[in-house]
């Protein structure tokens, strides 16, 4: 197709396949039979009104729900064909492969260097000190933070600005060499400039990673993602190319939500 750089990706295998995912918190069901495929090297945005289950779904993708008492997950989620809810899967290794960045930047109360070095150390990813230095530098560079902090790596991470802290957290996620990065409203505490930096970063990162982002900003979803999934009351209502969702959604509920007509 002219003017559409996107290659035909119909025959590409999705990175993540969620199959009929149900989630319960005790008696209360939060997700109902969610079927969703997430393409590799793309940004998928999850949108929907508060409480619709976006964060719940995101947390399923690296089994963060395991740590929530009385949370039960049914159905199947496969990453590269491998069932992540298989009892043989080590959640710690899974979370190395599927990193997460949260709404509020949450650096450890340690130096900038240690914030990044921590993950590679515990996962035994660095051969030696020089290699660890390299990992720290590459991660900070990829997160677009290296230039700003290279002269003060020993300073506490908590002393950075909010936007810098969020990029630090992204660098921290990258440092353990993940394949998927999950982001839950990563810009909601940031000003427009810091937000633009993160969005730019997300766009660069998708060359190497598969990214799933939850956002309340329709504009942000439209700007950063290639695919958008709309959730409503625990149901995945519609998923499709971002362009299609924001110009001509198929479902009235999607249209109602993105145009601001929801009661």
């Amino acid at each position: 197709m002219p003017f559409n750089g996107r290659a035909d990706r119909t025959n590409e295998i999705p990175k993540i396949v969620a199959d009929h995912v149900d989630v319960f918190y005790g008696e209360k069901q939060a997700l109902f039979g969610v079927d969703l495929e997430i393409n590799r090297n793309e940004v998928t945005a999850l949108i929907g009104p508060s409480g619709c289950g976006k964060s719940t779904f995101l947390r399923c993708l690296n089994r963060m729900n395991d740590v929530i008492p009385n949370c039960r997950v049914g159905g199947s989620i496969r990453i590269d064909g491998e069932e992540i809810y298989d009892p043989k899967v080590d959640p710690v290794i899974l979370r190395q492969k599927v990193g997460m960045v949260f709404q509020k930047p949450n650096p450890f109360p340690k130096s900038i260097y240690d914030n990044i070095a921590y993950g590679p150390k515990i996962h035994g990813l660095a051969r030696d000190r020089t290699n660890l230095d390299e990992i720290v530098e590459t991660s900070l560079t990829r997160a677009g933070l290296w230039k700003e902090v290279k002269d003060r790596l020993a300073a506490p991470g908590t002393g950075l600005s909010g936007g810098q802290q969020q990029r630090l957290c992204i660098a921290r996620a990258i440092a353990v060499d993940p394949e998927v990065i999950l982001m839950d409203e990563p810009c909601s505490a940031l000003d427009p400039i810091a937000t633009a930096r993160i969005e730019e970063l997300i766009d660069e990162l998708r060359e190497n990673y598969t990214i799933v982002i939850v956002t309340h900003s329709m504009q942000q979803a439209a700007r950063v993602s290639q695919r958008t999934a709309f959730f409503h009351l625990g149901v995945l209502v519609e998923v499709g190319d971002t362009e299609k969702i924001f110009t001509n959604p198929a479902d009235d509920r999607t249209q109602g939500y993105i145009t601001g007509r929801f009661g």
Binding site: F246, T247, N248, P249, Q255
Partner: peptide
């Protein structure tokens, strides 16, 4: 307003 969908159209 940054309209979307039917409003944008």
């Amino acid at each position: 307003r940054q309209p979307f969908a039917i409003d944008l159209r």
